[in-house]
Amino acid sequence: MYQFKNCQELLDLCKKEKLPISQIAIKREMQIFGKSRPWVRNKMKKVRDTMEEAIELGVKSTKKSKYGLVGGDARKVYKTINRSSNMLHSKVAIRAMAYAIATNEQNARMGKIVAFPTAGGSGVVPGVLFSTHEHMKSSKRKMLNALFTASALGIAILKHGGTFSAAKAGCQAEVGIGVAMAAAGVTEMRGGTPEQCLNASALGLKNMLGLACDPLGGLVEVPCVKRNAIGATIAMAASDMSMMGVESVIPMDEVVEAMMNISAGMSETIRETALGGLAITKTGLKLREKMGLPPVPKKYLDWKNRKPGNASNKCGGCNGCG
């Protein structure tokens, strides 16, 4: 059986079968869903092609989203790639940022994208993988395998009690998991072992823990788009460190547990409700008004007098009356 319930079991399977994560993922899909290898690969090719199209359109477009909050930044970043000598990041990292922004900007302007793991966190994986693929001039097969590895990690996270829902766990579950998946995928693409892949995702996700979901006006635009770009650089840093032999003290499964125990203590204001964080800053509120959305109830704006973790200061904050 190629079934696994968490990252440790996935790693054990890789060791037992002497296979990389991507191959275990393919075999699992074939076995559980009764599909042929070509069917599985073709379906992932569609995913890859959709990502590529979104990137191609996104780095060229200057079109703004409906409310004009995002659009055109991918192009700005992409244009600097060949003048990157005075930038702090390498060309491959800058290109990853450009591709991540491109994907999320396309999403914001109703383009076709792959929700990976969700629409909001859809930029990190293609950003990191396509840029590295270009840099390494690696084969198409390797690119596809990296997507399998990233997806396998997503499965292990879900099976271990994780979630992709920002309404449950905030942005750590969207962009955060995007970072973890991208780190694992790119590490396999660079020839890392399954251990190094999982270690890279642990390093990556640890740096996204606790991240609030606080989108302005509830739209998947600010801070989402740029969060994906900087998330991409975190995934690359995590992969680099893992390839250099730096190990995460906390194993990946436990990082997922940490993400969930943090979410249990997260106020609802920073779980996709647009009632906390950046969404209720002075600028956030001004833009909200401009969009014609109903005002944020007063109790959420009075956060200075609130006990930590409480959504409002009316009561004990059990949210039962919420």
Partner: peptide
């Protein structure tokens, strides 16, 4: 039903939101 690779890598959809648009 078990989780598929394509529940993670997908859906392929028109943006901007998986719950507010695709759903």
């Amino acid at each position: 039903m078990d989780v598929s690779l394509f529940d993670v890598a997908g859906p392929i959809m028109v943006g901007p939101s998986s719950s507010h648009t695709a759903g």
